[in-house]
């Protein structure tokens, strides 16, 4: 029994790392722009498709395909920020929170259906980075999952370092804490917005492109991950990168262990997606700041 639980926990850990990759970009965007990007799942989906087609049609090697896709989506994010989110900060819209929710939601409808039209409904799969499986005792895990979890850790560490240690990171943090004060100190908050939204989008694309070989590619593939990411950012505290990482691991474990320890075994899997959502509801009710959120953040 203990061996079994350890195996499940290990599997949950890997899933958790994959979740972290998805939620990281959403967290970054929220921490600087104070916006929940409802189109995040679609950026994730586009990242996966771009890397798939670059590899399939232009013969890019997998790593290059993923990198190029990340860069493309970075610029797509920049364009979205300039065209649609800028008005929130120039005072052109009245109800900022609501405007941001609705416009990103509208973008998600638009992009998802555009993808269905352009790419077609067929399920695709990117080529594996490293094919085959690796065994630990009686658990065998596909190499794709191992690669993605390793890369997820790399992305997390890189994000933490860039935010915590570099000059750009300082700017981002300053804007995240107080836009006006940052502007007075000579930091251009608009530039930081651009950077944060672009980088957040790029992280989403990285998630999609890397998960392509594991969870397959189809136009609505972003719908589930984006909801998981919502759970994670709420659980971790909106805008907290540290919180995001820890919450991802908690969610991965909770789903893995929860769905096999569910009292009615026949329905454990049916309720799997509800576990995270229940977290979200409970956290919002009892401690809306989540595990690591400093305060109840809201746009002014």
């Amino acid at each position: 029994m203990t061996e079994y639980l350890i195996l499940q926990a290990l599997n949950g850990l890997i899933i958790g790392l994959i979740y972290a990759l998805m939620a990281l970009g959403l967290t970054l965007i929220f921490s600087v722009l104070k916006i929940v990007n409802f189109a995040h799942g679609e950026l994730y989906m586009l990242g996966a498709y771009f890397s798939y087609y670059l590899a399939k049609m232009f013969g890019f090697p997998p790593v290059l395909a993923v990198l190029s896709s990340i860069i493309i989506v970075f610029f797509l994010g920049v364009v979205i920020e300039v065209l649609f989110l800028r008005p929130v900060y120039t005072g052109a819209v009245e109800r900022k929170d609501e405007y941001a929710i609705l416009i990103t939601f509208g973008l998600s409808i638009f992009l998802q259906n555009l993808a269905l039209f352009v790419f077609g409904p067929w399920t695709r799969r990117s080529p594996s980075f490293v094919s085959g499986t690796t065994s630990f005792c009686s658990l065998s895990i596909s190499n794709d999952r191992l690669v993605v979890s390793a890369l997820a850790i790399v992305f997390m560490v890189a994000t933490l370092i860039i935010i915590g240690r570099t000059f750009i990171g300082k700017g981002l943090r300053a804007v995240s804490q107080d836009r006006e004060a940052a502007a007075i100190a000579g930091i251009n908050p608009f530039k930081m917005n651009l950077l944060a939204f672009g980088a957040g989008s790029a992280l989403a694309a990285a998630g999609g492109a890397l998960i392509g070989p594991i969870f397959l590619i189809f136009p609505t593939m972003g719908a589930m991950p984006v909801i998981k990411s919502f759970v994670i950012i709420v659980l971790g505290g909106m805008g907290s990168i540290k919180g995001c990482i820890i919450a991802s691991l908690i969610l991965g474990e909770a789903e893995s262990l929860g769905s096999v320890l569910f009292p009615d075994l026949t329905r454990g899997l049916a309720y799997k997606n509800a576990i995270g959502l229940l977290f979200l509801v409970v956290v919002l009710l009892l401690k809306p700041t989540g595990l690591f959120g400093e305060k109840h953040v809201r746009m002014k």
């Binding site: 079994y4 599997n11 719908a223 589930m224 026949t266 329905r267 454990g268 899997l269 799997k272 997606n273």
Partner: peptide, 16 residues
């Protein structure tokens, strides 16, 4: 066992 159509990771059950 039954599951949602949108489920993506069956590993916990398969491990079981």
């Amino acid at each position: 066992i039954t599951a949602e159509r949108t489920i993506q990771d069956f590993t916990p059950q398969l491990l079981r």
